[in-house]
Design a protein around this nucleic acid. Structure first.
Length: 376
DNA sequence: AAATCCGACAACCGCATCGGA
DNA sequence: TTCCGATGCGGTTGTCGGATT
């Protein structure tokens, strides 16, 4: 808890007859002290939340009602979840922000225990930073596509890795693996154009069968087989209600201009699986997914720039990540850290990897911005 | 070791909205 | 219907601590 450093407004006034004025002059600002926190918590424990101005007057706190409310909602409330955002939460934020924009409180409603302030800060410090480095607007179609093409797949990868790690270490509660098709459906259905209404609540995307919530998230997962031998790392996942599928991640989307659909296939099990036709999907129980253009060779390489080049201006290919293994051949390929050889033991530094990739992209994008006349 | 930079996050501010008198 | 206080929301700023020079 940070100690008192806030500016105590000077209470010096020759006329203290006006009570309101006196209150105003004594109002504290800045970081909250432990004593203040205790006062606030005790008051709320006795009287409940709400009526913040009354609370501010009666609790003995020299704070505004607004300040009390904010302190409670953003910090003291018992169900506040602390710590770093999980990959799932990050993915959800990216997804929901693409639908709703800066509706932080609305987004926060779908991340139990997370506050709008926390989500807003995450967006500004992490996401907007990437956009700045790309020299594009964070709300631009180009950046949104980059997020879908690069960021989300990596989060999916991290989620898979996390799921696997939990599996092997017997951590509780064991998070069931995210079903790739559900993620795909989520990504696909939420596309601003492809997905229909912008205002559709993502929770309504959930199919009735095999659905459920875990940790308050709306992601739909399928039941986990507790046996490590059947974990997702083996390349197939046991599920009672769904057919076995290879361990891959897929995203499908249509960009703001109606181009596409584009799709992404991340090979997570080393099998080099790719899907080029509906029959293959159907055989895996993933029919209904839109996996992108038939001329998928157009998007055959592995970089953000390639994707941007292909969709926006054409141009040279470059590979920014090593590995060179096979990845799915659909549209914007994966570049999933060594292609086709997913490392589930990879430390959590993959976020840094993302940044490096995007930063590398930024330099190239800057070049192409000239080609595009800077009109991104 | 000191200075500087920078990321993360807590907190504040202004405006919008809501609801009751 | 209008007014006004309470509350909520999003943008912005301030502060701290770790990283870098």
């Amino acid at each position: 808890m940070s100690q008192r450093k806030g500016a105590m407004a000077a209470a010096v006034t020759s006329s203290k007859h006006h009570e309101d004025q006196e209150m105003m002059m004594e109002l504290r600002r800045g970081p909250w002290t432990l004593e203040e926190d205790n006062l606030l918590m005790n008051y709320i424990a006795c009287h409940g939340e709400g009526r913040w101005n009354l609370l501010a007057r009666c609790s003995g706190l020299k704070r505004t009602g607004k300040s009390c409310r904010l302190r409670w909602l953003n910090y003291l409330k018992p169900d506040i979840k602390r710590g770093n955002l999980t990959p799932e939460e990050q993915l959800l934020i990216l997804e929901l922000h693409s639908k709703w924009g800066n509706r932080w409180s609305r987004i926060a409603q779908h991340l139990p225990g997370r506050t709008d302030n926390e989500i807003k800060n995450y967006w500004r410090t992490r996401v907007q930073k990437q956009a700045r480095q790309l020299r594009v607007d964070a709300n631009s179609a180009v950046f949104r596509d980059a997020v879908r093409c690069y960021w989300m797949p990596r989060l999916l990868e991290k989620m898979a890795a996390t799921s696997s790690a939990h599996h092997h270490h017997g951590e509780l509660p064991p998070p069931p693996p995210l079903h790739p098709s559900h993620v795909a459906c989520m990504a696909s259905s939420s596309s601003p154009i492809h997905g229909g209404s912008h205002e559709q609540d993502p929770t309504t995307h959930a199919p009735a069968a095999g659905s459920g919530s875990h940790g308050g998230h709306y992601y739909q997962r399928y039941p986990v087989d507790p046996s490590p031998s059947t974990s997702t790392t083996s390349g197939s996942t046991s599920a009672a209600a769904l057919p076995p599928v290879p361990c891959f991640s897929e995203l499908s989307w249509v960009d703001q201009y109606g181009y596409g659909p584009y799709s992404y296939t991340a090979d997570l099990d080393g099998a080099g699986v790719s899907f080029d036709d509906a029959a293959a999907l159907e055989s895996l129980g993933l029919d209904g997914l839109d996996l992108g253009p038939a001329d998928s060779d157009v998007y055959s390489d592995t970089t953000l720039l390639d994707y941007l080049n292909s969709t926006c201006a054409g141009g040279t290919m470059m590979t920014m990540m090593g590995g060179g293994g096979s990845v799915g051949h659909n549209s914007c390929g994966g570049a999933m850290g060594g292609g086709g050889d997913a490392d589930y033991g990879r430390p959590s530094s993959s976020w840094r990897t993302d940044e490096l990739v995007v930063q590398a992209s930024a330099r190239r994008l800057g070049d192409h911005q000239h080609q595009w006349g800077g009109g991104i």
